[in-house]
Amino acid sequence: MVSLDDVAGMATELPGVVELERHGSRAWAVQGTTKRGGPKVFAWERAFSKADIRRYGAETPPDGPILAIRVADLHEKEAVLAANTGAFFTIPHFDGYAAVLVELDEVTEAALRDAILDGWLACAPPELADRYRAG
Rank of each mutant, 00 (worst) to 15 (best):
L14W: 00
L14E: 07
L14R: 07
G16E: 07
V17P: 03
V18M: 10
V18Q: 05
E19R: 13
L20C: 12
L20M: 12
E21Y: 01
R22I: 02
R22L: 13
R22V: 11
H23N: 03
S25V: 11
S25T: 15
R26Y: 01
A27Q: 01
A27N: 06
A27C: 01
A27H: 04
W28E: 02
W28L: 01
A29T: 02
A29E: 00
V30P: 01
V30A: 13
V30H: 08
Q31T: 10
Q31V: 10
G32Q: 02
G32H: 07
G32M: 06
T33E: 13
T34S: 13
T34W: 07
K35C: 02
K35W: 00
K35R: 13
G37S: 09
G37K: 06
G37Q: 03
G37V: 04
G37D: 04
P39W: 01
V41I: 13
F42E: 04
A43M: 08
A43P: 09
A43C: 09
W44Q: 11
W44T: 00
W44E: 10
R46E: 09
A47T: 15
F48Y: 11
S49T: 15
S49I: 03
K50Q: 15
K50G: 14
K50P: 09
A51Y: 08
A51V: 13
D52Q: 06
I53W: 04
R54K: 14
R54E: 15
R55K: 11
Y56A: 10
Y56H: 11
G57Q: 04
G57P: 12
G57V: 07
A58C: 01
T60A: 15
T60W: 10
P61R: 09
P62D: 03
D63Y: 02
G64A: 00
P65Y: 08
P65I: 02
I66H: 05
I66S: 05
L67E: 00
L67K: 01
L67F: 04
A68V: 09
A68F: 05
I69T: 06
I69M: 07
I69K: 01
R70P: 00
A72S: 13
D73I: 05
D73V: 08
E76K: 06
K77A: 10
K77S: 09
